[in-house]
Design a protein around this nucleic acid. Structure first.
Lengths: 342, 342
DNA sequence: TGTTAGCACTCGTTATCATCGAGTGCTAAT
DNA sequence: ATTAGCACTCGATGATAACGAGTGCTAACA
């Protein structure tokens, strides 16, 4: 158990390091106001805190920097979450614009979030787990090509272009689309293919000539491969952090950020509420020297999206936590307002 | 007018510098095969070429590097376009996959292009100038919100979510959509709003109660703000170029690449055929020390998209020109195959 | 006994300086 | 007209010293 004095010193070291990115020495710390102890005393405590694993040295005669354990303790025990009203207001103003599309809200929020922090932000759209089909359309483009369009009850639109081997009979097409709409409206997107195969195939066989030829195409339309829609803000902003001084680091960071699958992997286990993952606590190799802070936003029945911020372990946790919880709330509110019933 | 010997020396210097990124000295050049002159002769010619503005020195006793004028001459007169068959094949294989959506073709092509060159590539979708409306749909989400969907004859899908002040009457909606489709099918996307205002407003007033309430919403749907759809490949790859050694340069480059408007500005005047813009020939400040090489691809009647590659002025022009003209051809071919009539 | 002043020591940073080598321009010889 | 030779330039490299912010330890102090 740490003493009061140790807590104070640990906190001041971490606060200072987060601000300046320079190792903190005993003399400099002693000079600060609110620091009633002498440099020598601080040195002793620092040595103890280092033994306990909360601090580190960059070399034998350097000042101290927080270890990952130090940050962990800091995040868990030392930061009284402040609520930054001016930033909150900025977020609210942004989101309260008359934008009715999740994609745009997400894109803009991601940019603003990065602008306010100089870290890189990622916003994931909710998976479509619970969204239901509102309407299905198939629009013929030529005699042998068509574009299929799915609209969900949350206003999400997906489309897929197809090329057919045989000509389309317009009246057959109409029949198929009518039957599909009739039977599939209200069915969750993820179950479309299954319901189609189980319940509708037979029906269609009865009503539509040559249905066998179309079977694969329709199956394809309904086979829902979850596309991961994500919006990234401020890939350049993070270069302002002194931690990104060497190019190989920038390179590996940017390479990772270009890989959507990896980012999805990174964020797949997001829990509700704010969660902070520091350095090696992260499972993905490429960000083992960064911190990731995540939260979720919600709308409809169980629609969950993710908001994340990626920065150096020397992150302004206090500010970032407050920002993320504000944004989570604002986005949930706005989405709830736009899609009240769904 | 340059002598044969000057041409040879200029060409060899530029080739060498493009390959190694190191200033080229007379002794090193003299040692190469195909170089029948001595170091001293080369030195004299180099001095002349420098006087003529084709070469530069980085400092008084350094080897020579090409000036922008040198690159310009090189591109215009010294590179016999080679056709790199293996790369051509890669491109063809990529594009010949069963992808029927321009967006995906563009995205994948952009990535491959960057992978093959280690420069940053940009592919712009064609403007919709000539595309025509195939079908319009309005899908109600709740009593006061709906999503409008436009499908063009090229299979392009756009959608917009709206929030209304008053409840929607389903039968009115159907009437409106039917009339709109009836009158607007085949009308170029860019003229939808105009035709609507001029020819359809009156008609709708006759058939639909309270049409005035809906007027603004429909106008909004049809008001086509050209969204610039662009796909970027390899923002990280370009860091492999030694020219991107300092972070401030990386920062300004990435910042520019995050600004879609600026990129659109950059590419708005693309001419048909391959075009190379070197260093200060570029009008945008942020890329005055880079080279931009562009070409177009085509489909349908006058649908023109842009392919671009952005790299250091020390670019492998020969390779890049051949790659871009292959890709332009491949993309045009594929698109023509998918949308033959349009 | 806990706190602090003092001091020797460490080590990264910065500046200085000599050396090296790839390059040039010029002159004289071929 | 071409080339060999040579003095000179200048960035890069590496060694060395001086500096300073920091530490750990010991002894003095309240």
């Amino acid at each position: 158990m740490l003493t009061e004095r140790q807590l104070l010193i640990l906190q001041m070291i971490i606060d200072d390091f987060i601000e300046t990115a320079h190792p903190v020495g005993s003399r400099a710390l002693a000079k600060k106001k609110n620091m009633p102890y002498s440099a020598a005393t601080i040195r002793n405590e620092m040595a103890d805190l280092e033994d306990l694993g909360f601090l580190e040295k960059t070399h034998s005669s350097s000042g101290r920097i927080p270890s990952e354990k130090g940050y962990r303790y800091y995040v868990d025990h030392l930061i009284a979450p402040i609520s930054d009203k001016s930033n909150k207001k900025i977020l609210k103003d942004i989101i309260d614009q008359e934008i009715y599309e999740l994609e745009q809200i997400a894109q803009i929020s991601a940019e603003v979030l990065s602008e306010l922090t100089n870290y890189t932000s990622i916003i994931l759209e909710p998976e479509l787990l619970e969204t239901k089909l509102k309407q299905l359309q198939i629009v013929p483009l030529s005699s042998r090509s068509a574009v299929a369009i799915l609209v969900t009850d949350t206003g999400h639109v997906e489309h897929r272009t197809m090329k057919m081997k045989n000509d389309i009979d317009p009246s057959d097409l109409e029949k198929v689309v009518n039957i599909l709409n009739d039977k599939l409206q209200g069915v969750p997107i993820v179950r479309l293919e299954e319901v189609f195969q189980r319940e509708i195939t037979k029906l269609l066989k009865q009503y539509v000539r040559n249905f066998d030829e179309s079977y694969e195409y329709i199956k394809n339309i309904l086979a829902h491969e979850q596309p991961v829609n994500l919006y990234i803000g401020g890939k350049a902003n993070i270069l302002l952090q002194p931690e990104f001084r060497d190019i190989s680091k920038i390179y590996s960071f940017l390479t990772m950020m270009e890989n959507k699958e990896q980012i999805a992997e990174l964020l797949k286990n997001t829990k509700h509420g704010i969660e902070v993952t520091i350095g090696n606590e992260n499972e993905i190799e490429a960000i083992k020297d960064l911190s990731l802070i995540t939260t979720t936003y919600h709308f409809g029945e169980g629609q969950v999206g993710t908001i994340a911020l990626l920065g150096p372990t020397r992150m302004e946790y206090r500010k970032v936590i407050s920002l993320l919880s504000s944004l989570s709330k604002e986005m949930s509110d706005v989405l709830h307002k736009y899609f009240p019933s769904s």
